[in-house]
Design a binder for these strands. Structure first.
Lengths: 192, 192, 192, 192
DNA sequence: CATGAATGAGTATTCATTCAT
DNA sequence: TATGAATGAATACTCATTCAT
């Protein structure tokens, strides 16, 4: 009696997700060239061959992970936040809160940020994070809560710092993480 | 006219320097695993075998480059600056000036910073940059020019940003570099 | 209504036959090494695992097919023909008729011939086809209807040609097949 | 002191030729799937890696050998022969002489014929051998020396037999090779 | 019995290193 | 010294076979 069509689909889905999930961290830490399929498969807990059932090649797996890195890093949440009817200062604080909390608690998130930013540096990712943040910055500059300067540069700066601490948290468990407040202050005017 | 002993030595020196110089950039961009000797030698403009005359192995070359990365990145200048009888604010401004200028004009410098920081993340570098900067920060906090907070964390933050723009400049020629002023402000109190 | 013992047996028989039948063609075209179980099972229309219910291994399946290739190729009919009380010329004509007709109409037959000959080349098949044909040739040489020369060589030649067109018909549907007459003439004296 | 440019070129040429020459036989005997790079390199007497200096992949090596199989099989000589001002009967006899002699003495030649014909069966080779032979056949039919029938079919038949004995000679050293005379008679009218 | 996802031994390919020139 | 062809151990990838469902 054959396995049911749906159950097979489910198994496939599960295994593929497992591979992706575990690979994100591994690639983020070790890079493409630094990742051996033999080590990766051991880390995932499957046979080497299984990877090739779901991905044509190591490069293919990497590309797929790269491609979804913005999802892993929570781009959709950011876009939603930007759309809310709130003052920019609040948005920035919420965003910073969310980012710092996620970096601290969720290795996958940190890995997603790291991969997404690498992709940006190599010119292969769209700049959705930057652009959404730019909008918030401009709103804040109108409202007087955000420091003056090129929104683009400020956005890059903000995300650069997020990247920085993402990478740090991948390498060292106990890194002296900045607070959400520290991060917000990069954009917000000091209140005296 | 036979080559004199010294001339030979000179040539050796020159070739070795060429290899180091060109390798710094290559390793900084591609990492250890991502660097193939075949590609690297092409990039340097010599034969693969030549590298092995000067270095025992790829790892040996990498180690040597790593070992001098803090020199490339100008650690000695920083130490000297810290020792001068100047207010911390001035030191920070001078330091930031120097860093931004170097990042802009000297690829080798950027590569040195990138490699040094990678080493730090992997826990293999001493933390001289951080520590020297910490001293300046503490001085500044006493003098009232530097924001309050853990000197260690502020130092890490400052150098994180330098690293960030070092990596950026390795990848994109025209990256929207921050100004020395932007960089200084990370540590300095806002003056109203 | 539970399946009877016999019905079960029948189903087994049917599936096994299906596998053999479809495999003959596949192996004949692609050879042992060139046949992947994954491709073969797709071609048969069953799951990979099913093959292993009926055959211990790929080699086992191949061996079984090889073993019956002379039956597929109609060796028994040839032996019977040789035994009939007929002049050699008639036997040769009947044999050629039968071979050409079968090659044209029955892919399985062509595949059987191809496999049998491959086996011969590799020295693993007995030479029953050759030997039976040799007898007919010798009879014909006595009767004056068959060209002179080594019966062995003529027999090899005759079957070589049959093999040739067997292979051709496996690859190209519309190959310019020789006629039974052409084939007979390889052995028979020209009549003026 | 570096190797001279020319010497390097020479060495490359030599090694590539060695690989091609030895591979022709190996592939002809074992087919593509049946040939392991590890075995092939042992057979050639070089390291596995060396093959990949000259060929991008196993497939690439095979394709290159396939592509030149008509040269190995001596297509140019055949074309030249067809152009000579001779009666067709002489051409056919010379051609058959040459073919049988080459098959007997030169394994490479046999391998070339085998590969070329495989290519034909797979529809990837042009049909230069067939076409040149067709011309000679038509000439001979006009001159009355060649049997009647479709020139195309006769040509296919003739080359089929050559292929047959090419394959045979690859497998068995002492195969009962037909004589040049036997081969010629496939096309020529019997003289009484 | 039938299925097809998973396995891992086997095979292809790469790349740091060596060495004859 | 400098070269780059050759090497073979390390790594990527395939495919016959197994096994839980």
């Amino acid at each position: 009696m054959p396995k049911s069509q749906e159950r097979c689909q489910e198994i496939r889905e599960e295994t593929k997700n497992l591979i992706v999930k575990k690979s994100v961290l591994y690639f983020a830490k070790n890079g493409f060239a630094g990742t051996k399929i033999s080590d990766l498969s051991k880390h995932i807990g499957i046979a080497q061959g299984t990877i090739y059932i779901y991905f044509k090649s190591k490069e293919d797996l990497y590309a797929e992970i790269f491609a979804i890195s913005d999802k892993i890093a929570g781009n959709d949440k950011l876009v939603m936040l930007a759309g809310l009817p709130l003052p920019a200062e609040q948005k920035i604080k919420k965003m910073s809160d969310y980012l710092i909390k996620s970096l601290r608690d969720d290795e996958m998130f940190a890995a997603g940020i790291a991969l997404y930013t690498q992709r940006l540096l190599e010119g292969e990712a769209d700049q959705s994070f930057y652009k959404t943040t730019e909008k918030i910055i401009k709103q804040g500059q109108k409202e007087g809560s955000v420091v003056s300067g090129s929104a683009r540069k400020l956005s890059e700066f903000y995300w650069g710092i997020v990247y920085l601490y993402a990478v740090k948290s991948l390498y060292t468990a106990d890194s002296a993480m900045i607070t959400a407040n520290d991060l917000s202050r990069v954009l917000l005017e000091d209140r005296k």
